[in-house]
């Protein structure tokens, strides 16, 4: 039994190494890779890399173009705002998040896929043109959205939370009951790692998170006291 368990655990790890090798064979990101988006704003510690195997994390700056497969990472008290090149949407990558950007063009149409490895993303996505798709992927859920704004969170225990202020999203997820569903505006869905899900009306916490996810500026103020300086960092709304 122990041996079987060992094999079951070690095989995926080995597959992981294998997949890394396959990725390494791809050409490094250069002109041959399609640019999908660009960074509109960065605050504090925001880094990017071409892919896990193609480069190390480097500092991300305003105006940086992001190609298919690029990853964006935000540190503590950090924020990045990403624009898609077809003007279809804006993503606000909150602190301690990792976002992978994917996209494929078919003629003048661009299918976008934002893979959230971890963290929280605020989004504001326009209605997609016929035949175009904008979707968020996490390891447990795929959400296709259209004309939608809200936030999406994928936390460390693999719980997926999505809350919409407007628009709708089609969800596909794995779980004991299979799993597809539709999330409408004013609602929130929480899907746990084992596929159990709960749809609910937005509560105060969700509304607070939506408000927070819209804030695209990070501010600091300093209060001088006799004991020293207190630094207060806060997210301010976009002007």
């Amino acid at each position: 039994m122990k041996r079987k368990v060992f094999i079951l655990l070690i095989v995926p790890l080995l597959l992981g190494f294998k997949s890394g090798e396959v990725d390494n064979l791809r050409k490094p990101a250069d002109d041959t890779k399609e640019i999908i988006a660009l960074i509109k704003k960065v605050f504090n510690n925001v880094t990017f890399r071409l892919t896990e195997k193609e480069s190390d994390w480097q500092e991300a700056k305003i105006g940086l173009p992001l190609s298919d497969g690029n990853e964006l990472r935000t540190g503590t008290k950090s924020l990045a705002v990403v624009l898609f090149k077809d003007g279809s949407g804006i993503l606000r990558v909150r602190e301690n998040s990792i976002l992978h950007i994917y996209g494929t063009s078919e003629g003048r149409k661009l299918n976008k896929d934002a893979f959230i490895q971890r963290g929280m993303i605020g989004f504001d996505v326009n209605k997609q043109a016929e035949g175009e798709e904008f979707r968020f992927t996490t390891p447990t859920v795929v959400a296709s959205i259209r004309g939608t704004n809200g936030f999406l969170e994928f936390d460390e225990d693999s719980t997926f939370t999505m809350s919409l202020e407007s628009g709708m999203a089609d969800l596909s997820f794995r779980g004991p009951q299979g799993g597809t569903g539709q999330l409408n505006e004013g609602n929130t869905v929480v899907i746990t790692s084992d596929g159990n899900f709960q749809f609910r009306n937005q509560n105060q916490e969700d509304l607070n998170k939506i408000n927070m996810s819209k804030q695209a500026t990070l501010k600091k103020i300093y209060i001088e006291t006799e004991e020293g300086t207190i630094e207060i960092e806060y997210y301010a709304p976009e002007e």
Binding site: L9, P12, L15, G16, Q117
Partner: peptide, 19 residues
Amino acid sequence: NISDRLRLLDNQLFISFGL
């Protein structure tokens, strides 16, 4: 409780196992 999730094919294929 131990679990692993493997991301493959540029985050398109996910294999999970838990014990």
